[in-house]
Amino acid sequence: MNKPFQFILLFFFLLFLQVSVLNNIHFLGYVNPYLYISFVFFYPLKENRFPFLLASFILGLSVDFFSDSGGIHAFSILTIAFIRLFFIKIYFRKTSTDYPFFNLHSESFGKVFNYVTTLTVIHHFILFSFANFSFQNISHVLLNTLYSSIFTLILFFLGTYIFTKNQ
């Protein structure tokens, strides 16, 4: 299948899944998953990072347009898109020569779990801090981060499990 086309499709699929379904879940009154960040996990590693950073920014900004939140989604997804490389070096011990062969499915589950969890928690923490925009209710921010991260991670691993089985 045509690779760039596949990622354009993934972009719009994640965007509409997020704004039409996941933003309206409100589990227990306020917990929502933010599954659109799996774009950052699925996008392949490349030497030229400009298209990836720009695509992540635009995805975040599109979610912002739908949820009337200024630029908080754009800010937080761009942060994890930028620091992704750092955590790949730490958890998977990859150098720039390994980038074309790197695939999340071929790595062991423990490493992938650490990698995805770290980025998800960072993203959610930045997102909720900005959404709250004050130092009051800090416990609210931390609880939201915890619950939403668990929700997002469950959906992410279930989703990848189902889709890799079919192939």
Partner: peptide, 11 residues
């Protein structure tokens, strides 16, 4: 890009 996002958030 972060600067743009910050500006939009504040606005």
């Amino acid at each position: 890009l972060q600067f743009i996002a910050m500006t939009l958030t504040f606005n």
